[in-house]
Design a protein around this nucleic acid. Structure first.
Lengths: 356, 356
DNA sequence: CTGAAAGCGCTAACAT
DNA sequence: ATGTTAGCGCTTTCAG
């Protein structure tokens, strides 16, 4: 029964070794470790000394198995390299650290199957919460599966958190941290319309298989309120990546679709559009106005600085963790909707026709 | 001894429940779970069926405690939101996933104490490796502490990995995945000098307390080989952030220091410099050339596209995981140095004096 | 304030 | 091919 001779090393120090060296029992060591139980000062000192001398660290697994919680937060992320998601992740990580938790991270890259596999995997780790960021699909089976996960996690004493994703229904035990997609898009489109734009291209109308179409809906509602029709030729479906923004803009120009403004569904798409416009000799905002969505930090640093809709990414992440960990406090609501607002910078001007 | 009534839920299903329902013993269930032992097809089917019906998932902690490894990779990162680090993190995450591991992530934000606390925390989790990315300090106590961690992790059957960080010494059991800082900086500086530049500002000469000064060394060596002195007024120490690049450039201009090129120690610093130059009415590369380091994906997409030194971020991350996990294969070296090379784009031109 | 005993859920050695 | 037994390192009753 020789256990774990660990190819390159010997058996790590355990609580028992500490107990022996300090001349006390194992539970006593455990008590000074937890610090939630009276221990004589002298005993405590002896134990701490032994721990230091032996370079002892607790075994998180043994602790999780014996005690109640693993003190981890699981994060299932669409993609770490996208600025929008990475800032949410930062919020999650910082709040988790502040509450004494480590993060377990998995990446899905927009694959629903990988996402579900990731949730299953996270279930095995029995963290305090499983936070889903980005990606959300609308197939009914997918939804059913998520509801199932929400229930399973709840029964296991954990919590499913939908961060920046649509809710699953009021009877589903999940925490929801949303933000306003439709309203922000409505406000920004209104801003463009008020500036005099009548031909506004919308880049990134997500297809029905993926994330909600709320942003394009806001765009549509603003047009409706202005009594203007939407020209379908101006609404370009696509993913949220820089290359899509670039390609879509090039295509619009090549197809000779006339437009005086571009509203990109994300700031990253907008940077691609900006690039394409510049390459085609269009000045922004003199010839064409450009607006984005998300207000990633880079938006303020582009030339011209991008007019966009602010989404508090960091706050979103922090809130997700906070709500999940304090879900038993009566004051803490489990469904919040964080507001968004327009940030006016330099990439939007009246269309050329409206200027001298 | 009522265990874990878990405020909002009941006791999760265990392997025992599965065994009972399938009418077999616990080890048999364990065997079909592991799949590394002969089990009769009929029995296996019964067990799998029971697992499905009970919605069973293994307890990762129990498994880690009883078995050998936790199947996790710990990642201690300077900052998730910086593109350079997030792309390394992506490489780590993908390789870890490919090898059936989940990542535990902690962020340090350049605080040596937080970094050490993070390593301690990761030690508790008994992952297969603890990968350190970014940040590295040069105080002797810090170095001693890291050496200590390397030994402790080794003894625990884990592995310290220094990714993009200087080695700790040949006798220290750690995996090192380096890349060439000095050589890349030398090559790029030579490129600028060859183009005719003689007043090249260097932005981001790290102070002695933090990361190595190798990049500035390469800058110096190139000058020496060209038989040129370095003007200290052109070498600006600072952190690697966009705002530093912006401020330093503004300062240089305000101080009327003459320069025809800027070599930024990171691409992110370069974006700040670009911004400041644009604001001051300098055209790039017509009036001033700009070069960066790292080749973050954004570098290719700037206007003008940035000439820089390519560092394979994704590869760095993947390699870190691969080497650590396969450290017992004789063929796998535990100290690799990944090459860097210049990427010539549009932000460097001969200085105005050398053009018609 | 401290120790003895039990058990968390799982895997691995030992028998069949 | 399967069951029995022991034990991973820790926390938590329960006694004293």
């Amino acid at each position: 029964m020789a256990r774990r001779p660990a190819v390159g090393g010997r058996r790590p120090t355990t609580i028992k070794d500490v107990a022996v060296r300090a001349g006390v029992s194992v539970p006593t060591v455990s008590r000074v470790l937890a610090g939630n139980y009276p221990v004589a000062a002298r005993t405590k000192a002896k134990v701490l000394r032994a721990m230091r001398e032996l370079d002892y660290v607790v075994n998180a697994h043994a602790r999780a198995l014996a005690g109640a919680t693993a003190r981890t937060i699981a994060l299932v992320l669409y993609d770490i390299t996208s600025p929008f998601f990475s800032h949410i992740a930062q919020g999650v990580e910082e709040q988790a650290a502040a509450e004494g938790r480590v993060c377990l991270v998995c990446t899905t890259r927009g694959d629903a199957d990988r996402e579900m596999a990731a949730v299953e995997l996270m279930r095995e780790h029995h963290g305090d919460a499983v936070i889903l960021v980005g990606g959300a699909y609308r197939e009914p089976e997918y939804r059913e599966r998520m509801i199932h996960y929400a229930r399973a996690l709840d029964e296991a004493g954990s919590r499913l958190v939908l961060c920046g994703r649509p809710p699953l229904g009021d009877d589903v035990p999940a925490t929801v941290v949303e933000y306003d997609n439709e309203g922000g898009a409505y406000a920004l489109t209104s801003h463009l319309l008020s500036a005099g734009h009548r031909r506004i291209a919308f880049l990134g109308a997500f297809d029905s298989a993926t994330t909600p179409t709320e942003r394009v809906n806001g765009y549509g509602r603003a047009h409706a309120e202005f009594g203007l029709p939407v020209d379908d030729a101006l609404v370009v479906p696509g993913e949220f990546g820089r290359s899509f923004g670039y390609r879509a803009t090039k295509q619009l120009i090549q197809d000779q679709v006339s437009f005086t403004a571009i509203f990109a569904a994300t700031d990253v798409i907008a940077t691609g559009a900006l690039h394409a416009l510049r390459e085609s000799g269009r000045r922004v905002p003199d010839d064409v106005s450009v607006a984005g969505y998300d207000d990633i930090p880079m938006a303020a640093e582009l030339t011209p600085a991008l007019t966009t809709v602010h989404v508090p990414q960091f706050e979103l992440g922090r809130t997700a963790v906070r709500l999940a960990l304090h879900r038993h406090d009566a004051e803490v609501s489990q469904h919040v909707r964080i507001g968004t607002h327009i940030v006016v910078r330099d990439s939007v001007a009246p269309p050329p026709s409206r200027r001298p």
